[in-house]
Amino acid sequence: MRSALVARPTIACRGRETRRDIIDRWPKVGDYLVIHAGFAIHTLDPGEAEINPKLMREMAKAMRD
């Protein structure tokens, strides 16, 4: 990490630096980032990342049942 405003996410950016100037919540290691044109705009923790797929699986399960 070169400065407080620069991060290097492990996937998706091919090693590019990502700025955190406008991020909504300061990330910690293990969090996911939504990145747009070199700037992280949204942080979500693993629990928040799971909400969408969980809802979809429940919707699909309801159809099967």
Partner: peptide, 15 residues
């Protein structure tokens, strides 16, 4: 909101 993993009700106030 069907995109809760990227969007909140209030959005990104810092941006």
């Amino acid at each position: 909101n069907a995109y809760t993993r990227a969007v909140t009700w209030e959005g990104n106030g810092r941006a």
